[in-house]
């Protein structure tokens, strides 16, 4: 598999009231054709901003360093038609479908707008393609749905409409940003199964952004964990949960209650997650890390190879296999 997407040393600063604030620091990741990559982290970790940078949806005035290459094209240099073409190939599905759909337009208008405008497809043909896409995501009676308004559809149904709409432009990479977080668990399972099918049937690559390590582990090939704007670990998704390399990944695994047993006490991580611009120098996780030493705080940590994964922790090799000690009993 060759890399369809390559993000290299991406650093993003956003314009805020108080000046430029860094939200991502030196993020690198690759996604191969047909691969599902999970991107896991807490608030402010920079996971959504990474997706926005890839789709070129960052707010005005953002300062972007590093490179984003999609299928050999330099994404950061695109504009005009080439940028529109890029956004057709890289589709985004957001967390809250209601916030991203015009409430006073029918589903058909929303779904077919870009086909009719960008690809000059006739109205009946566009409607036909929209109906077929709805069927692909398991929506019955698509003709009726196309005539309905967003408020007539449930959240789960609307999220499937968003996925179907993303599919209409025949994307090669789907950026799913917490796209199942607001859904009921049974609906989440359905949407995940649909995404899984699409990946197999169409060879779609996926960047799956979530705070749910278990969900990422279950549906992704590899998982990237972000903290304070940096990637701290990249590893096969199936291994991350039981055999994490970075103390932060291990802490996330342990902090989550377990559905099959009651812990005497949860192993909480002290303090709160920070954004890149609030992060201390040296290891950014050090203030919350039970394994931190003076040397961790003193030096910037770099990503290094370890056991088939990559980890940003100078003690990773030494702590190997000991991170989950005292986990759920």
């Amino acid at each position: 598999m060759s890399a369809l997407l390559e993000v290299r040393d991406l650093t993003v600063q956003l314009k805020m009231d108080s000046g430029m604030r860094e939200v991502i620091t030196g993020t690198s990741l690759t996604i191969a054709e047909g691969e599902a990559m999970g991107l896991v982290g807490e608030s402010g970790s920079g996971k959504s901003m990474t997706a926005k940078a890839i789709a070129r949806l960052l707010p005005d005035g953002a300062d972007v360093q590093g490179s984003v290459t999609f299928d050999g094209t330099d994404v950061l240099a695109l504009d005009g038609d080439a940028l529109r073409k890029h956004r057709a190939q890289v589709a985004v599905v957001f967390q809250d479908p209601r916030a991203h759909i015009n409430p006073v337009r029918r589903i058909e208008d929303f779904m077919t707008e870009s086909l009719r405008i960008l690809e000059s497809v006739s109205k009946p043909d566009a409607a036909k393609r929209a109906a077929a896409a709805l069927e692909e995501v398991g929506i019955d009676d698509p003709g009726k749905r196309l005539r309905q308004f967003p408020h007539e559809l449930s959240g789960g149904m609307l999220q499937r409409v968003m996925i179907a709409t993303a599919l209409l432009s025949e994307p090669r990479l789907l950026l799913a940003d917490e796209c199942t977080t607001a859904l009921d668990v049974t609906t989440q399972a359905e949407v995940m199964a649909i995404l899984d099918d699409l990946r197999r049937d169409r060879g779609l690559s996926m960047l799956f952004i979530t705070h749910d390590l278990e969900l990422a582990g279950a549906v992704c090939d590899r998982t990237c964990v972000m903290y304070a704007g940096q990637v701290v670990e990249t590893r096969a998704a199936s291994l991350l949960h039981g055999d994490p390399l970075h103390p932060y990944s291990a802490a996330l695994v342990q902090a989550r209650p377990d559905i099959s047993s009651t812990a005497e006490r949860l192993v909480a991580i002290p303090g709160r997650p920070v954004s890149a611009f609030e992060a201390p120098s040296g290891c950014r996780f050090a203030p919350r890390c039970p394994h931190a030493e003076d040397a961790c705080r003193a030096e910037e940590q770099v990503l290094t190879e370890l056991d088939g994964g990559r980890v940003r922790c100078r003690r990773a090799a030494e702590l190997r296999g000991r991170l989950l000690d005292g986990a759920h009993v």
Binding site: T186, A189, A193, E214, A218, H241, G242
Partner: peptide, 19 residues
Amino acid sequence: KLLRASVPGPGWKPQRMRD
């Protein structure tokens, strides 16, 4: 049972309603 089966975990495989 459906609720329980919908919770992701190790070895979990999402299943479509029609399947």
